[in-house]
Design a protein around this nucleic acid. Structure first.
Lengths: 252, 252
DNA sequence: GTCGCCAAACTGGTTGACCAATTTGACTTA
DNA sequence: TAAGTCAAATTGGTCAACCAGTTTGGCGAC
């Protein structure tokens, strides 16, 4: 499920413990070694083990009973709830879907947005601006802005659909590889302008302009990504690029 | 999300913190108070706060940076990534989202559909027809038809989005309650006609007609469901019904 | 021999002091 | 005035000792 790089120590230990559950042939109902013993076994302190156990507990793998011990209530492989990673999909296929969904979300949002929604978007934009200067660290403003637009439809299903597409993007090695070349501030500024246009249209409650602005924004993203692509790569899916701009741009 | 009884202390604190994120009007990017301050504020020890923060971190709500502080990267209301089962949502909110998504899928599909896609749709339609006679048993034709349309876009992300919305429908008690009154053959025939119209438009590769037909189909579903609704039920979400038909029907 | 009791051992939970990374701000210097 | 420096303050991370339930096992009463 989470493909994160284990950054904090408890995450590394948690992953190791999860692996241990299957490797060591544990069964449901078995008792794990005491926290102190696990700590000694893995050569870490007990605190870290406790935190890692919380991680497993939140995945419903174990149950912790004070005074008794830690018991297994489920096994990692069988728990389908946690492991739901979709297959990787080409960046352009993903962008195509987003273009279809988000441009219409923007159109709808133009009619539904409350003043509070608008101010939320403005805050997201401000976050993007402040992120322009700090070249290091993750960028949250972009995602937040798109989410704000979706939330402005007042429809939680649409928000979830957008979230799901974003999750795919964050879990996509292909996308990461492609987007790593685009960290340049220049593009971020371009997209900031796009976002600003979208916000303006939403503010004016102009659905046609909002739809077009969102469409154009994702069109620009596609184009920049396309420019940076290695077309000779056999796994490149840019052929999808040609097929889609026609149908939805008729409101232009 | 998890409806567990908070048993261990960190779970109580975690829930309290999550509630605090929305109540105190925190925004994405904001910094939470220091662990020590939260501990004093809630009258618990710092250890418990740290464990509760791990809980929020595993929900992708916060990011913990050593030496800097704890930062919000997402808000509780929207984070649906981790838990598998979504909250129930009103039938009309769901239909609204489907209307936005599927009408545009139909439009796009009109340009992308292959002959094989068209014949798949025809088979789904045949399945619906044969299901008309057998009043018992589950109906698969309806879902299959909508899926065929989505597949005709040749975009797997769009198919997955549709699948997700369908999954919500199948897991929704509210929808089940409402739809149970509609099993009558009469409505199934009406929708069969709708589907037939959609197929015709796709066959003619007429995106505008396809979009309108799909829109109208879901409009009809909404209307029938609305007719059968108990408007006096306080949990009824039909108010959403009024707000949406305007924006996307301009292609009519 | 069986049952009941209770203390010791074992388990997770808590605490406060300390460590390490980061930020802050006053001071120096050009 | 501006930029650089560095020490102190702030923040999350670690640790070992201690607290509080639970289990275990031996001892004695019957």
């Amino acid at each position: 499920m989470r493909n994160f790089e284990p950054k904090r120590p408890y995450q590394k230990v948690g992953l190791e413990l999860r692996r241990m559950l299957v490797d060591k042939d544990y069964k449901v109902g078995d008792k794990l070694p005491a926290e102190r013993d696990i700590a000694e076994l893995l050569g870490v302190t007990r605190t870290v083990v406790r935190e890692a156990l919380i991680m497993l507990e939140l995945e419903n793998l174990i149950e912790v009973r004070k005074g008794s011990g830690v018991f297994i209530i489920d096994l990692p492989s069988s728990t389908s709830g946690s492991q739901s990673l979709k297959d990787d999909v080409g960046p352009f296929e993903l962008l195509q879907a987003r273009q279809l969904l988000e441009s219409n979300i923007a159109e709808f949002a133009a009619l539904q947005a409350t003043p509070k929604d608008i101010s939320n978007m403005r805050e997201a934009l401000d976050m993007e601006i402040s992120e322009l200067s700090q070249k290091e660290g993750k960028q949250y403003g972009d995602k937040e802005f798109h989410l704000c637009v979706a939330r402005a439809t007042q429809n939680s299903v649409l928000v979830d659909m957008l979230l799901e597409s974003w999750e795919r993007r964050e879990n996509s090695p292909m996308w990461e590889q492609l987007h790593s070349r685009i960290r340049s501030t220049k593009y971020q500024e371009l997209w900031l302008q796009d976002h600003s246009d979208i916000l303006l249209a939403l503010q004016k409650k102009d659905p046609v302009a909002a739809k077009r602005a969102m469409w154009q924004h994702l069109e620009n993203v596609k184009f920049k990504l396309f420019e940076l692509s290695d077309i000779d790569d056999p796994s490149f899916d840019g052929y999808l690029f040609k097929s889609n701009p026609v149908v939805l741009s008729e409101n232009n």
